[in-house]
């Protein structure tokens, strides 16, 4: 059993890596950096990474977490990858709207819709 709970779970479904944030808060600098590393590894592993980020459990996140997502997205785009975000709670979605990151990321209400959106 791990000493510290995992920050994310990664499940491969067909060609998509589904990354679910397991904690309710994405605030701690160390955690954000670790999640960033995990996402970067997923991007680097494959020629055309396809990643779905599931925010079902997330109640709080900081601008540093947004920065980490932006970095991962930029890295992925360089490899012609696809990234989708899903199951974002309304109060977190508002953070995306205020920062206009809802225009940068493709956000879907649920996993099925997000999965269908991959080309």
């Amino acid at each position: 059993m791990p000493e510290t709970p995992a920050l994310v779970t990664v499940t491969r479904v067909k060609d998509t890596d589904i990354v679910e944030f397991t904690q309710s808060k994405i605030l701690d600098e160390g955690n954000i950096s670790e999640i960033g590393n995990i996402l970067n590894d997923l991007v680097d592993q494959r020629p055309n990474p396809v990643i779905l980020l599931d925010f079902s459990n997330v109640d709080h996140l900081s601008s540093a977490a947004l920065g980490m997502l932006i970095n991962a997205n930029s890295r992925l785009r360089k490899k012609n990858g696809q990234l989708r975000l899903t199951s974002i709670k309304p109060q977190i979605f508002e953070v995306f709207v205020i920062t206009k990151l809802n225009k940068l990321f493709r956000i879907y209400a649920n996993r099925d819709e997000a999965m269908e959106s991959f080309t």
Binding site: S63, L66, I70, V95, T99, K103, L104
Partner: peptide
Amino acid sequence: DPTSEENLCKCSGRGILL
């Protein structure tokens, strides 16, 4: 302004905005 088109991919300025 982190919400302007050219800054959307940059990683700073959002804390103050929020």
